[in-house]
Simulated scan of single mutants.
Amino acid sequence: MDYALAIDGSPEEIPGGTGVLLLHPSTGETDRIDTDFLKQDTDRFLVISTRTTAREVMQKLDYYDVDEDRAVILDTLSVERGYSRRSSENVHYVGAPDDLDGIVEQTEEFLANTEGKRRVSLDSITELAYYAGEEATQDAIRAILALLDEHDAVGLFHLATEVHDDEVVAAYRDLFDGVIDLDEDDSVSVDF
């Protein structure tokens, strides 16, 4: 199954199983790319949020006019920070961003229990690595990429470049089929 990819300079379509790495400066405005990725040619999508709460993710989806009815959100922050939370059919929680097993498990559950064209957005790898370490995070990313392949889904994974050593960025880059590089001036270069 092929998926439309509406990002300047990228292929018009990518096959199911494709993982895309979004490299960006810490201050980069990634919301537009992220929501464009989720907005079209999608039956259901999972947002794995390690930087914002489920409520903030819903606000972002609403602001960018993304169909919230197709969304499932995995909030990794609210439990650890003691925020009130209400699980629902479309909002799930893990205890903290370092609960990599829980994140992989929730991703597998989403992909196993939904049909059609599915997308996953993980914002961000950088936060996972901060909490769980680079090696464990890379293992978790490999597991999620394998799930995308198994279930014919696609994913977009955020990584803040200046937070990681060049070798670490290169190691993540090697895991992905495509790389979108967002510069500080919001220009985009793409490598597939």
Rank of each mutant, 00 (worst) to 15 (best):
R86F: 11
L61E: 10
E109M: 10
L111N: 10
H92R: 11
G95I: 12
E105D: 14
L77F: 03
D101Y: 13
D65C: 09
D69N: 12
D69L: 04
I103F: 08
S78G: 01
G116R: 06
E56N: 09
A96F: 13
L111V: 07
T53K: 02
G82K: 01
R85Y: 11
D62P: 02
D67L: 01
N113Q: 08
R70C: 03
I73D: 05
A71M: 04
L61I: 12
E108T: 00
T76V: 03
V94W: 13
Y93C: 08
R119N: 06
R118Y: 11
Y63V: 13
D65F: 14
R81Y: 10
I73P: 03
R55I: 12
I103C: 10
V91W: 04
F110V: 05
D123A: 14
R55A: 07
E105K: 15
F110S: 08
N90C: 08
V104D: 03
D69S: 11
V104Q: 06
H92N: 04
S84I: 12
Y93K: 01
E68F: 08
R55G: 00
N113C: 01
V79C: 01
A112K: 15
E105L: 12
G102R: 07
A112R: 15
R70S: 04
S121L: 15
T107Q: 07
R55F: 13
T107R: 08
V120A: 06
A54D: 14
S84V: 12
V57R: 00
A71V: 03
L111Y: 11
D65S: 14
Y83M: 11
L122R: 09
R118N: 15
E80P: 07
K60S: 10
D75A: 06
V94H: 12
K60V: 10
Q106D: 05
V79T: 13
Q59H: 10
L61Q: 10
D67T: 01
K117Y: 05
V94E: 10
H92I: 14
V91L: 09
D98Y: 13
